[in-house]
Every structure is written in C-alpha cells, then in structure tokens.
Design a protein around this nucleic acid. Structure first.
Length: 673
DNA sequence: GATGACATTCCCTTA
DNA sequence: GAATGTCATC
C-alpha cells in the first residue's frame, strides 16, 4: 500500500462488490491492478488460482505477470491466471472440449486463413459472389460474431439483399469451420459465452473457479467480451474493471465504450473510483491533452494533473515533404541523443498508419540510429513461417483445411486450382474436410487419375510423418520434415537471388529455435503435446518474443494504436495533417471523436517533451497533394505550441547542418573512447 | 496447370 | 507506386 494515493488505496482495498476504476492516462492503473492482486493473496488469503486478470494483448499480460513476480515469491503466485481475453477463451474451450463438440487438436485460424476460406466460399456461393468484397464479408461476419448473432439471426436482421447474401455466406463459413474442426479468433470468445449461457452446470463450474476477476482496458471490450465477464462473475460480482473512456480507440472493430456505463446498470451495487493524478507527464503535455479532449462530446469530463514539473512548449515542425519530415525527425533524435546524452530508448515516433513508417525507417538507417518497429508485417506473417506453421498444424489436426490448402502445392506437386475446386465441391456436398474428400470414391471418379494418385500419395506421406511425430521433439521433427519436402530448394526456385532464399531459410531456422523454446509449459516445465504447442503458437506473437532478446536500446516506431499503455520521455507525433489524423474516412461525428481520442493517446505517451510534425505536400496514390494541418493542432491553445520551419525554404540545408553537427559529436565521442 | 503481362485496388488501426 | 488479382498463352 505504500506510495499509493488515497484513491488508489481505495481501489485496492475494495473487494467484495463490483468496482469500476476510471483511470486517466498515466494514473498508475496497472500498479493498482498489481497491488490489488497482491492484496487479495497476501491480506485476504484468496488462493492465487481463484484470481483471474484479463488484458487485451499478450504484451500487457506478460508485463503484468512480470510486475507481480517482483512483488510475490513464486510459491505464493502459483496458479494465478493472467492472460488475454482470447487465451482465457481458448483455455476454457480446451477444458470443455467435449461439451462443445470439438475434437482434440482443433485449429485456431488467423485472419489470413479465415479470409482465404471466405474467398473460396464466396466463389461457390452464387447469391453472394460478385455482390460482396471478401474483406467486407469478413468484417461483417466478425461484427455479427462479436454481437453474438448466429447465422440465422443475422439472416433475420439483415436489412437488404447484400446483407442477406452475407448472412448466407456466414452460414457456409460456420459450417465449414465445423467440418474442419476449426475456430476463428472471434469464436474464442463467442463459444465460451454460448456455453456458459446455455449450460448451467458449466456455468457453475466456472463461476466457482473464477473467485475474483480483474479486467484491464475495459473501454475496449466488445459485446461478447462483456457477456463473458458477466457470466464468469455471476451474481457475486467480484469484479474490478479498469478503464478510461478517453482512451477508447477500438470502436471500429466492435468495442463498446458504453460498456463502462453499462456496468452501473448491470451491477446496481457498483462503486466507482476516479484516478486523475498523473505520474507520467510534465504539465504542458497534460494541458495540451486536456484541451484537446475537452472537445470530445461523447466522453465524461476528466482533468489530468501532475506534480512532475512544468515542461516546455511543444514544437511543431513544418516540413516540406514526407522525406523531409523523416529526415528532420531522425536528425533531431540524433542531435538530442548526443547533446543531452539521452539513450535511444527514450525516443518514440508515432504515426497513424503503418505505411508512414517506411520513410522514417529509411532515414533512421541512413543515420545508423537503432530502432524497433512494432506492428507492420510481423515475423509470424512471413510466407515461409506460415508455411512451416501450416505443416505443423496438419500434424496436429489432419482436418485443418486452411493449412492443407496452404501447403498442398508448396513446394509444387502439380495440384492446381482446378483439382482443389473439384475437391472443395466434394467436401462441401458432404460436409467433410478436404483430406477426407480426397479419400472418397467420388474423388477417385471425378479427378484426373494422375493427379488423384499424386494427391493420395501426398496424404499418405502426411499420415506417415504424423505417426512419427510422437517419437521426437516437435522442432526436430519439423526440421526433418522441411528437409524431406526440400523447402530450401523451393525457396531457391522462388527467389531470384540466392541471398533472398538464404534469408528466408534463416527465418525458418529462427522459427525452429523458437519452437524448441516454447514447446515447454511455462508453469510446470513439462513439454507440451503437439496440439497444445500449436494452439499456443497461434496466440503468441513471435515478434514480441524476438525483440525482447535483442538490444532494446533503440528508438521505437509505433502506430498510435500500438502505443497505448506505453510511455516515453520524448515523443514525436508525425503526420499531424488533415486526412491523415483525422483519417480521411473518419469525418463523421463519432469516428472523428475517436480520431481525437487517438491523438489524445499519442500526446499522453510523452513524459517530458512532445514534438508534432507535418508536411506541406505529400504523395498519395502516386499523386502530389497539398496538405492542411490537422484540426487537432488548432484545438490546443496557441501558447503551448512553438511552430518551426514556416516560410523557411532552406529546411534541407538546415537539416544537413544539424546532421553535420551531430556527426561531429559522434566523432568526438569515438575519438575519446 | 504454370507462367507472365496487364489491370485494379489500396493507404487505417487488430486480438 | 506496391501488391494483389485476372486473363491469355504455352
């Protein structure tokens, strides 16, 4: 309890009835959750296994577990449940696998797999084809699932024929998932909710297990996640929800910030605690943030204050082009790194869209500034890694269609689109998975005999390899498998340079090493079954794992969304332009308000200094366009902003001068050491 | 069934 | 101006 302010203490001590903590940016909310868990275990004697803490990202979960590790010895925290919503759902599904009608070894499809499945279904479904974009269908189906609607309910509520066609596609999609013994990400929440809602015994089982539930970033929960919370908590309502409506930035993917206010409706005995003291930022940062967010008509007023210090006015760098912007940010960081002796990890560059990162990366590399890029194409999304994953998934689940489709002709085996289309037809007619369809008599009749032979041989080889999987560790077996299919040969054939092939092969070696490492249970230290391993992999981002090992004294590049929850001494908010922030597709009221909150999140990441940057003209779809400064800059009092670079045409020369100065500082330092 | 030239879309954010 | 999709040709 030491070092907590009175509001934080109240939030920690309050345990028997539901509690909502409205925690402003930087007000120490993670600290409150951590201390509360410690309090529950140490002072209240709650068994660790009865405490469940839920976050939105793996990273946040890991960080929380780490901080609790610093406060409690291992034997006192054993059995504690800290995970994302999706991992919690997955664990529940695994324990209730029979009740849910799934077979062991079920697959969790990622977004790409699910999109591919939708594409192929769309080609078959005549009423839907041509009317719907695959991406739109995927988005709509996800929305329905997040709202807990079944295909038939979606059909009933659909407003026009396009939506009706989409609902029928949803029905196909759901059936196909069942046939493949597969789930998508949304199912990881939806299925547990349906189970707990309809099965009183299962509900009781889980309510007894979950003695105390803590939920972070509550404003980001969607309808189905809220339902899961309600079902797990039950009537006792031993719940702590922590959130901030000002940081609600995920409404576009189904989050319901109003879930914060619904808590009072659903739990009449709810207590609310507000945390407004900020421990992160200097006052100029908070003043700018407060002024900006005061324009948000959709959220409750809340004013942040801090005792950190006064702070300086924020710079606004007006640059000529995006290249110029990147160069100025990079030279500015280099300059301050040497002038103030400030390590690179103190700097973060934030942007709205991932595409903005490319130019900034180039400039940082030019000046040899180390950086870590979060988001963008992750290691896990690389084709070769996904191929290897698909092989591994097929080892665990022979009916995984998405995985089979991915590698059936990779490397080339002469099994092309026509064959797969016919096979798909058979599979759909009988509601079986593809491998089963290929084994059927119908397949033997309808397919070209040479191709059919090729196909069954490949399936036989898969089965034989699968039966050998138990004999050795997964990573070892996969190494052998990749050699047997001559994957390296395939890479050399695909890539035009030997170097590129080598690089992708190295990625696979990294993946094998990673597989080896995570094939062990975190708590017990026992090695995981193949099924468990595959499921763990589909939920973990390898990127985070990798960057943690590396030297992390580097400038951070992140999107505004990815920056939530983090803090940095020096923050650069790039692309402060109309149509970029706010984004061009977000002009209507509620979406504009969300853009403003996104900007608020960006500003409140800064501890000591904040620099906005924008350009005069920017290339878009290959066309040059004039740029107007973001309206959000106007919502901040003029006194707080110090504009630089207006009317200065020689900005390039200026930058060269700054860069030259910084470089000479480097040389001086190298000379000394 | 594979391959390469042309056309079209996309530039938001994600568990 | 990348990246994916479509179509014609071998």
């Amino acid at each position: 309890m030491q070092g907590l302010n009175p509001q934080q203490q109240a939030a920690v001590r309050h345990i028997d009835t539901p509690l909502l903590v409205l925690a402003g940016a930087g007000s120490g909310k993670t600290r409150v959750i951590v201390e509360k868990i410690v309090h529950l275990i140490e002072s209240k004697g709650t068994p660790a296994r009865g405490i469940w803490a839920v976050t939105f990202t793996n990273k946040a979960a890991r960080e929380m577990a780490e901080r609790i590790g610093q406060r409690l010895p291992a034997e006192r925290r054993r059995g504690l449940n800290i995970s994302t919503f999706h991992t919690l759902g997955l664990n529940l599904i695994r324990r209730e696998i029979r009740t849910l009608g799934l077979r062991p070894g079920f697959t969790v499809l990622d977004a790409e797999d699910s999109l591919n499945l939708i594409k192929s279904l769309l080609q078959q479904n005549e009423s839907a084809a041509g009317m719907i974009e695959p991406k739109e269908a995927q988005w709509q189906i996800s929305q329905w699932k997040n709202d807990l609607l079944t295909p038939s309910q979606a059909m009933q509520t659909s407003a026009d024929e396009v939506e009706a066609a989409c609902a029928s596609l949803y029905d196909d999609y759901a059936r196909q998932l069942t046939a493949c013994n597969a789930l998508d990400f949304d199912d990881l929440i939806k299925r547990p909710v349906e189970l707990l809602r309809d099965d009183a015994e299962a509900r009781e089982r889980w309510q007894n297990r979950v003695r105390y539930l803590l939920v972070d970033e509550y404003q980001d929960t969607n309808a189905s996640q809220y339902e899961l919370v309600r079902l797990l908590v039950g009537k006792l309502g031993r719940l702590t929800a922590v959130g901030d409506d000002h940081q609600s930035i995920y409404a576009w993917r189904g989050a319901r910030p109003e879930n914060l206010s619904h808590l009072a409706r659903d739990f009449p005995n709810l207590t609310t605690v507000k945390l407004e003291q900020n421990y992160r930022s200097v006052n100029t940062v908070l003043t700018a943030a407060n002024q900006l967010i005061a324009n948000d008509p959709t959220t409750q007023p809340k004013t942040l204050w801090s005792a950190v210090g006064p702070g300086e006015a924020h710079r606004v760098l007006v640059c000529d082009t995006a290249e110029d912007e990147a160069e100025r940010i990079a030279t500015d960081i280099l300059h301050r790194h040497f002038k103030d002796d400030s390590p690179y990890r103190n700097f973060a560059i934030l942007f709205r869209g991932n595409h903005q990162a490319r130019l900034i990366e180039q400039q940082l590399r030019k000046l040899s500034i180390p950086y870590i890029l979060t988001g963008g194409q992750s290691f896990f999304e690389r084709a070769e890694v996904k191929d290897a994953m698909a092989y591994l998934r097929l080892m665990a689940n022979p009916s995984d269609d998405a995985a089979l489709l991915r590698i059936i002709n990779t490397p080339r085996r002469g099994i092309g689109p026509t064959t797969l289309e016919r096979l798909g037809q058979i599979a759909r007619e009988r509601h079986v998975h593809l491998a089963a369809a290929a084994r059927s008599v119908t397949a033997a009749q309808r397919l070209d005999s040479r191709v059919h032979h090729q196909l069954t041989q490949f399936l036989d080889w898969l089965d034989a390899t699968r039966s050998r999987m138990d004999e050795q560790p997964a990573a070892e077996a996969m190494r052998g498998l990749l050699e047997e299919v001559d994957y390296f040969g395939y890479l050399r054939e695909q890539e035009n340079s030997a170097k590129a092939a080598e690089r992708r092969w190295t990625n696979l070696q990294d993946w094998l090493e990673w597989t080896e490492r995570i094939a062990v249970d975190n708590d017990s230290g026992e090695s995981l079954s193949l099924t468990e391993l595959v499921q763990k992999m589909s939920l973990l981002g390898i990127l985070e794992q990798k960057t943690r090992d590396q030297d992390d004294n580097a400038v951070r590049l992140l999107t505004l969304h990815a920056a939530k929850g983090l803090e940095f001494p020096h923050v650069y908010l790039s692309g402060m332009e109309e149509d970029l922030l706010p984004h061009q597709d977000c002009q209507e009221d509620d979406r504009l308000a969300e853009e403003r909150r996104l900007c608020f999140v960006g500003i409140t990441r800064a501890q000591r200094s904040l620099t906005f940057t924008l350009t005069r003209r920017r290339r878009r779809y290959g066309q040059w366009r004039d740029v107007r400064p973001s309206r959000f800059l106007e919502e901040v009092e003029a006194d707080l902003l110090r504009w630089e670079g207006i009317g200065v045409q020689k900005s390039e020369e200026e930058n060269r001068a700054t860069a030259a100065e910084a470089m000479s500082a480097i040389r001086a330092m190298l000379g000394k050491s």
